[in-house]
Protein backbone atom coordinates (compact mmCIF):
# COMPACT_ATOMS: atom_id res chain seq x y z
CA UNK A 1 0.00 0.00 0.00
CA UNK A 2 2.78 2.38 0.97
CA UNK A 3 4.54 1.30 -2.20
CA UNK A 4 1.47 2.27 -4.22
CA UNK A 5 1.46 5.74 -2.65
CA UNK A 6 5.21 6.27 -3.09
CA UNK A 7 5.20 5.05 -6.68
CA UNK A 8 2.45 7.48 -7.65
CA UNK A 9 4.14 10.24 -5.67
CA UNK A 10 7.22 9.68 -7.81
CA UNK A 11 5.16 9.62 -11.00
CA UNK A 12 3.39 12.83 -9.98
CA UNK A 13 6.66 14.57 -9.16
CA UNK A 14 8.50 13.94 -12.42
CA UNK A 15 5.82 13.67 -15.09
CA UNK A 16 5.74 16.78 -17.22
CA UNK A 17 3.24 17.45 -19.96
CA UNK A 18 0.02 16.21 -18.38
CA UNK A 19 -1.74 12.86 -18.72
CA UNK A 20 0.08 11.59 -21.80
CA UNK A 21 3.40 12.63 -20.31
CA UNK A 22 2.63 10.30 -17.43
CA UNK A 23 1.97 7.22 -19.54
CA UNK A 24 5.61 6.23 -20.28
CA UNK A 25 6.60 6.29 -16.60
CA UNK A 26 3.35 4.78 -15.38
CA UNK A 27 3.71 1.88 -17.79
CA UNK A 28 7.29 1.26 -16.69
CA UNK A 29 6.52 1.41 -12.96
CA UNK A 30 3.33 -0.63 -13.06
CA UNK A 31 4.92 -3.39 -15.14
CA UNK A 32 8.13 -3.56 -13.12
CA UNK A 33 6.05 -3.89 -9.93
CA UNK A 34 4.09 -6.66 -11.60
CA UNK A 35 0.81 -4.88 -10.88
CA UNK A 36 -0.62 -5.05 -14.39
CA UNK A 37 0.17 -6.43 -17.85
CA UNK A 38 0.63 -4.23 -20.96
CA UNK A 39 -2.76 -5.24 -22.22
CA UNK A 40 -4.45 -4.29 -18.93
CA UNK A 41 -2.69 -0.92 -19.02
CA UNK A 42 -4.04 -0.27 -22.51
CA UNK A 43 -7.55 -1.12 -21.26
CA UNK A 44 -7.13 1.26 -18.36
CA UNK A 45 -5.89 4.04 -20.64
CA UNK A 46 -8.93 3.46 -22.85
CA UNK A 47 -11.31 3.78 -19.89
CA UNK A 48 -9.44 6.85 -18.60
CA UNK A 49 -9.78 8.45 -22.03
CA UNK A 50 -13.48 7.73 -22.35
CA UNK A 51 -14.49 8.95 -18.90
CA UNK A 52 -14.49 12.60 -17.83
CA UNK A 53 -11.71 14.14 -15.81
CA UNK A 54 -7.91 14.34 -15.97
CA UNK A 55 -6.33 11.21 -17.48
CA UNK A 56 -3.63 11.16 -14.79
CA UNK A 57 -6.16 11.02 -11.95
CA UNK A 58 -8.29 8.47 -13.77
CA UNK A 59 -5.27 6.22 -14.28
CA UNK A 60 -4.07 6.58 -10.68
CA UNK A 61 -7.52 5.78 -9.28
CA UNK A 62 -7.89 2.82 -11.62
CA UNK A 63 -4.49 1.28 -10.92
CA UNK A 64 -4.89 1.94 -7.19
CA UNK A 65 -8.33 0.34 -7.09
CA UNK A 66 -7.10 -2.73 -8.95
CA UNK A 67 -4.33 -3.25 -6.38
CA UNK A 68 -5.92 -2.20 -3.11
CA UNK A 69 -9.62 -1.38 -3.43
CA UNK A 70 -10.88 1.92 -2.09
CA UNK A 71 -7.83 2.61 0.06
CA UNK A 72 -5.49 1.77 -2.82
CA UNK A 73 -7.41 4.08 -5.13
CA UNK A 74 -7.29 6.85 -2.55
CA UNK A 75 -3.55 6.48 -1.89
CA UNK A 76 -2.58 6.34 -5.56
CA UNK A 77 -4.71 9.37 -6.41
CA UNK A 78 -3.40 11.32 -3.45
CA UNK A 79 0.14 10.38 -4.48
CA UNK A 80 -0.25 11.67 -8.02
CA UNK A 81 -1.95 14.91 -6.92
CA UNK A 82 0.26 15.86 -3.98
CA UNK A 83 3.50 16.87 -5.76
CA UNK A 84 1.60 18.98 -8.29
CA UNK A 85 -0.43 20.59 -5.52
CA UNK A 86 2.58 21.46 -3.37
CA UNK A 87 4.78 22.66 -6.22
CA UNK A 88 2.10 24.90 -7.74
CA UNK A 89 1.21 26.22 -4.29
CA UNK A 90 4.85 27.16 -3.78
CA UNK A 91 5.04 28.75 -7.20
CA UNK A 92 1.84 30.71 -6.60
CA UNK A 93 2.72 31.91 -3.10
CA UNK A 94 6.41 32.01 -2.27
CA UNK A 95 8.37 32.08 -5.46
CA UNK A 96 6.21 34.06 -7.83
CA UNK A 97 9.03 34.75 -10.22
CA UNK A 98 10.21 31.15 -10.44
CA UNK A 99 8.95 30.62 -13.95
CA UNK A 100 10.94 33.61 -15.14
CA UNK A 101 14.08 32.24 -13.49
CA UNK A 102 16.63 31.33 -16.11
CA UNK A 103 17.59 27.90 -14.75
CA UNK A 104 13.99 26.67 -14.81
CA UNK A 105 13.68 27.80 -18.40
CA UNK A 106 16.81 25.90 -19.34
CA UNK A 107 15.67 22.79 -17.46
CA UNK A 108 12.28 22.79 -19.16
CA UNK A 109 13.82 23.37 -22.59
CA UNK A 110 15.58 20.04 -22.08
CA UNK A 111 12.69 18.21 -20.42
CA UNK A 112 10.02 19.05 -23.01
CA UNK A 113 11.63 17.34 -26.02
CA UNK A 114 12.54 14.35 -23.86
CA UNK A 115 8.92 13.95 -22.72
CA UNK A 116 7.75 14.17 -26.33
CA UNK A 117 10.30 11.52 -27.27
CA UNK A 118 9.16 9.30 -24.39
CA UNK A 119 5.52 9.50 -25.46
CA UNK A 120 6.28 8.76 -29.12
CA UNK A 121 8.56 5.86 -28.17
CA UNK A 122 5.96 4.43 -25.78
CA UNK A 123 3.38 4.64 -28.57
CA UNK A 124 5.72 2.83 -30.97
CA UNK A 125 6.55 0.13 -28.43
CA UNK A 126 2.85 -0.42 -27.73
CA UNK A 127 2.27 -0.58 -31.49
CA UNK A 128 4.87 -3.35 -31.69
CA UNK A 129 3.23 -5.19 -28.78
CA UNK A 130 -0.39 -4.94 -29.90
CA UNK A 131 0.02 -5.32 -33.64
CA UNK A 132 3.21 -7.33 -34.08
CA UNK A 133 2.88 -9.30 -30.86
CA UNK A 134 6.39 -8.23 -29.85
CA UNK A 135 7.45 -8.91 -26.28
CA UNK A 136 11.24 -9.37 -26.37
CA UNK A 137 13.84 -9.93 -29.05
CA UNK A 138 14.14 -13.60 -28.15
CA UNK A 139 10.40 -14.26 -28.46
CA UNK A 140 8.72 -15.06 -31.80
CA UNK A 141 6.38 -12.43 -33.25
CA UNK A 142 2.68 -13.09 -33.70
CA UNK A 143 1.41 -10.63 -36.27
CA UNK A 144 -2.18 -9.56 -35.64
CA UNK A 145 -3.41 -8.24 -39.00
CA UNK A 146 -6.88 -7.52 -37.57
CA UNK A 147 -5.36 -5.11 -35.05
CA UNK A 148 -3.44 -3.46 -37.91
CA UNK A 149 -6.68 -3.00 -39.88
CA UNK A 150 -8.42 -1.46 -36.85
CA UNK A 151 -5.42 0.82 -36.32
CA UNK A 152 -5.67 1.89 -39.97
CA UNK A 153 -9.44 2.48 -39.69
CA UNK A 154 -8.91 4.69 -36.61
CA UNK A 155 -6.06 6.60 -38.27
CA UNK A 156 -8.09 7.10 -41.46
CA UNK A 157 -11.08 8.40 -39.47
CA UNK A 158 -8.81 10.79 -37.60
CA UNK A 159 -7.21 12.23 -40.75
CA UNK A 160 -10.42 12.42 -42.80
CA UNK A 161 -12.17 14.24 -39.94
CA UNK A 162 -9.20 16.61 -39.67
CA UNK A 163 -9.31 17.32 -43.42
CA UNK A 164 -13.06 18.02 -43.51
CA UNK A 165 -13.75 19.66 -40.15
CA UNK A 166 -10.35 21.30 -39.63
CA UNK A 167 -10.26 20.13 -36.03
CA UNK A 168 -9.36 17.11 -33.93
CA UNK A 169 -11.93 14.37 -33.49
CA UNK A 170 -12.84 13.47 -29.91
CA UNK A 171 -10.86 10.48 -28.58
CA UNK A 172 -14.17 9.05 -27.35
CA UNK A 173 -15.48 8.71 -30.90
CA UNK A 174 -12.27 6.98 -32.03
CA UNK A 175 -12.55 4.58 -29.11
CA UNK A 176 -16.19 3.79 -29.96
CA UNK A 177 -15.27 3.16 -33.60
CA UNK A 178 -12.44 0.83 -32.57
CA UNK A 179 -14.69 -1.01 -30.12
CA UNK A 180 -17.23 -1.59 -32.88
CA UNK A 181 -14.46 -2.72 -35.26
CA UNK A 182 -13.13 -5.05 -32.58
CA UNK A 183 -16.49 -6.76 -32.21
CA UNK A 184 -16.80 -7.17 -35.98
CA UNK A 185 -13.25 -8.37 -36.66
CA UNK A 186 -12.72 -10.63 -33.65
CA UNK A 187 -16.32 -11.69 -32.93
CA UNK A 188 -18.24 -11.81 -36.19
CA UNK A 189 -15.68 -12.48 -38.95
Amino acid sequence: MIDLFLTFLKIGAVSFGGGYGMIPMLTEEVISHGWLTESEILNFIAVSESTPGPIAINMATFVGASQGGLLGAFLATLGVILPAFIIVLLVASVIKGLMKFAGVKGFLSGVRPVVVGLIIATGLIMFAQVILGFSAISEPLSFDYKALIIFAVVAATYFIYKKIKKGSISPLILILISAFSGIIFYGVL
Binding site: F151, A155, I177, S178, A179, S181
Partner: peptide, 8 residues
Protein backbone atom coordinates in the same frame (compact mmCIF):
# COMPACT_ATOMS: atom_id res chain seq x y z
CA UNK B 1 -10.17 -3.24 -30.94
CA UNK B 2 -9.93 -0.36 -28.49
CA UNK B 3 -6.29 -1.19 -27.73
CA UNK B 4 -5.39 -0.39 -31.34
CA UNK B 5 -7.13 2.98 -30.98
CA UNK B 6 -5.28 3.75 -27.74
CA UNK B 7 -1.96 3.07 -29.44
CA UNK B 8 -2.96 5.50 -32.16
Amino acid sequence: GIQAAVVF
